[in-house]
């Protein structure tokens, strides 16, 4: 790149073309900074709102920074008094504990993402190596994802709340319901994200040269040994990236969780939507606080696995 650059510079005598070329990085950076500001603004607004007291949420003209910073919103969402929701007070002062939802979200997302990653990796391997499902299957894996969630939300509700309980009662004599359970949500998220995992892992597994496995086989290694010692370590970065991607998808999923849970199980995005009161409308402060809390694990995960992210996305650098 740099070589080609200097070459063109040397070839053209210091003219307009050169100067324009010199300005290109500046222009590019200006555009990128502008774009970043647009993207970052809502996050900034959420962050600063989370430190504002109720009076400041909707002032006009807006306060760009909290005039009187407070941790009230965080106290409100982090209170341990789960039963406090029944206390008759102003909604702005009610404790809205997020602990239950945080636990539900963490369990559901971690469980479903891990199982999806495990299954998806092996499925991707079999599709990549044995053409399982036929030659075109790899292109159709994502087809399931083309269906908008709203289309399947109500049918799923029928299954979860009615058909499965009645069917199990008829067959096993015990009513098993997946509606409003963590296991039900985990199975659902597993189903919904598995195509993504397969699709992403396929591109990583495809990059592992066949001959590596052949070499291992010649040296006497069995299929599982080869997978464990050769293939999986080589796609590990890809697995980390895939896990993060799927985890975030599940972490932020709203529609299906809203339809299929209540009142026992509640994920964070669903909880977020519940913050309103008859007297005061939307409770922007606690909502912003929860939004911030939801974002933090994702950001921490992202930073923690940054090395893998770069490696994962720049896959294909394997020495041949």
């Amino acid at each position: 790149m740099s070589n080609a650059h200097s070459k063109t510079q040397a070839a053209t005598p210091a003219g307009q073309k050169d100067r324009r070329r010199d300005h290109m990085p500046l222009v590019r950076h200006a555009i990128l900074i502008g774009w970043a500001l647009i993207i970052m603004f809502p996050i900034f607004w959420m962050l600063q709102t989370s430190f504002k007291d109720s009076g400041e949420w909707v002032t006009w003209p807006p306060n760009w920074l909290p005039q009187d910073p407070t941790l009230k919103n965080y106290q409100q969402i982090f209170t341990f008094d789960v039963s406090g929701s029944g206390v008759a007070r102003e909604a702005t002062d009610q404790p809205f504990s997020i602990w239950g939802s945080l636990r539900d979200s963490l369990i559901i997302c971690t469980l479903s993402s891990l199982i999806a990653l495990f299954m998806g990796t092996f499925l991707a391997y079999s599709i990549s190596r044995f053409n399982v499902g036929g030659k075109k299957f790899r292109h159709m894996v994502l087809l399931v994802r083309m269906i908008p969630p709203i289309v399947i939300a109500i049918p799923l509700l029928m299954y979860y709340a009615v058909l499965i309980p009645f069917a199990t009662e008829a067959v096993f004599g015990a009513r098993i319901s997946l509606f409003d359970t963590r296991i039900g949500m985990s199975i659902l998220y597993l189903t919904v994200t598995l195509p993504f995992v397969i699709w992403m892992m396929l591109s990583f597994v495809d990059e592992v040269p066949y001959t590596l496995e052949h070499a291992a086989r010649i040296m006497g290694a069995g299929r599982m040994y080869t997978l464990r010692k050769v293939v999986l370590p080589l796609v590990a970065s890809g697995m980390v990236v895939t896990f993060l991607f799927v985890f975030i998808l599940n972490w932020a999923e709203f529609l299906l969780a809203l339809t299929l849970t209540h009142p026992d199980v509640s994920t964070l995005p669903v909880l977020l939507n519940k913050f309103q009161s008859a007297s005061e409308g939307r409770l922007y402060g606690p909502q912003a606080a929860i939004g911030t809390v939801i974002t933090i694990p994702v950001v921490i995960l992202g930073i923690a696995i940054q090395k893998h992210l770069v490696k994962g996305f720049s896959f294909g650098m394997l020495r041949r």
Partner: peptide, 27 residues
Amino acid sequence: PGERGLGMVFQDLALFPHMSVFENIAF
């Protein structure tokens, strides 16, 4: 293949990129 008592060198060498040279030879 592993029970035929063979050694094989591949066109692309097929060295395991995530292992040290020692581990490659020791595989």
